[in-house]
Design a protein around this nucleic acid. Structure first.
Lengths: 132, 132
DNA sequence: ACGCTTATTGATAATGATTGTCAAAACCAT
DNA sequence: ATGGTTTTGACAATCATTATCAATAAGCGT
């Protein structure tokens, strides 16, 4: 097991290898599962750094957890996220872009940014849930 | 079934008296400041009830707190929020509803919920910002 | 390579928001 | 008032996140 001094790199890689959004806790567990001795505090530190340097996106799940994801595209886009397994589909949302901009302007707002994320259960998790 | 809950009324009124979004904790403090002996647990319960019955909206602040707001319309709707002064405009978003549902279905997702909020600077704050 | 200085790490404690517990108080129909 | 049900609120428990801090590793000039 290689002991990489810069554990931040390990976190970045783990994020890259992750399909969708993942919580800091889950990422930590995941790293441990692959044999990394990384500490929870370091995972949080690394995620915070990555997020503030724009190398990762972060969002708040509906139940208050912070979720992170390495987003390949630097451009603006939105997400369709499985609230069970974290699977994430990136979606272009021109329609919504236009709508948001229009609504903002209509009410005299400028510098409009928007949070548009859709949470649901992916096909797989829906099946699992039904089986329960 | 109408429950006889005077606390819920107190919470509802306190919410009504509040301009923008407020945290459960802050609302509790605010109630205490006006002499109400209401307990923190009850505030959370009342807010939860109001939120699930559609009488209040909730969203997650960037730092993970849950914020609440009394909404005038009971139906599903979204918000246009001034990131400077907190002014909030409620917006109907049928277009977005349909889009979200469509996108979800298209990718096999079920039980779709969505977070759609637009942040910007209201006309007033834009003027102030320009003046600087 | 060696010693010295500084930055990074990670176990654990601390924090802060939220939720659970449960006995006491309030309410209601008799 | 009385018994049974519901609501309340002090406090404990929980969960994610952040701060602490001693141990360790990386840098660096020699």
């Amino acid at each position: 097991m290689k002991r990489n001094t810069w554990q931040r790199e390990a976190v970045r890689e783990a994020l890259d290898d992750t399909e969708g959004f993942i919580s800091a806790q889950a990422l930590h567990s995941s790293l441990h599962a692959t044999g990394s001795p990384i500490g929870l505090a370091t995972v949080y530190r690394a995620l915070g750094d990555l997020a503030s340097s724009g190398e990762a996106d972060s969002l708040q799940s509906p139940d208050g957890e912070a979720l992170y994801r390495a987003c390949s595209t630097t451009g603006h886009h939105h997400h369709l996220i499985c609230r069970n397994c974290g699977l994430t589909v990136e979606i272009a949302a021109d329609e919504v872009e236009a709508w948001a901009k229009g609504i903002a302007a209509e009410h005299g707002f400028t510098q409009a940014a928007h949070v548009v994320d859709v949470f649901g259960l992916c096909a797989n998790c829906t099946a699992l849930a039904d089986a329960r």
